[in-house]
Amino acid sequence: MSKKIGILTMEGTNCEYETFFAFKRLKGDAELVHIKQILGEVKNERSIGDYTCIIIPGGFSSGDYIRAGAIFASRLSKIKDEIIEFIEEDKLLGGICNGYQVLVDLGALPATKKTISDEKEAAFIINSSNKFECRPTLVKHVNNGKCLFTRKYKKDDVLLFPSAHGEGNIVFRDEETLNRLISNDQIVFRYVDDKGDYSGYPWNPNGSIFNIAGICNNKGNVFGLMPHPERVFYRYMHPDWTRNRDIDRGDGLLFFKSIIDYVERY
């Protein structure tokens, strides 16, 4: 069985290297793979079935001029059946920032009813501040164990994951969808302030309802996260690291460790 982790890119993806290195530093068997390889448009073809985990990293795929992630999602929908099979085989499909937007646009998240929903259950709109926001944000790990990407974090851990996005405000089709997410344990991270309380802007940098920063599907093997764990792999990548030099590990490391552990056991 293959153990590979694929970092899926297309033009405008721009967080692929730091995401790749995050796995490599933990001896993960990761490689960069371009969507043209997956879609069989170039010689060195790949199939998503070759991987146990696919991560769609951050960036501005195709410029995000239409709706963040829409073009990437539309290109991926050409292999919708393979993606459904991938998810149903309990493999991991994750998206960070732009990747999260792609998975939501594709219907793989929140996917409360089917593996990939036919109708849109959620969408991202422009930040409530009406601006691109690059700022440190704190998130609380609120998942009760469903999410396979965050098993190494304890419940209620508060982590610093930096945000950098313009369209991160998630909205749901209806209140029922949000309620279903909550009752299904599909909420994984929520923005909090420095006291650990749910607060508004700027602690919630985009205005997302229920302070949602990351969600998973009903099986816990598709996951999307707005802020960037790969930007806090080491402590010296934290924005305030010089205030406390005794810690080595960055807050994002365990995210990648959780994935590698799952992939190795798969």
């Binding site: 967080c15 290297y17 601006k131 930096p162 950098a164 930007r231 010296y236 990548m237």
Partner: peptide, 12 residues
């Protein structure tokens, strides 16, 4: 805040 100052993960 309007510029991404840490994309690339190299900004220490």
């Amino acid at each position: 805040r309007r510029y991404d100052h840490e994309v690339g993960g190299r900004t220490i």
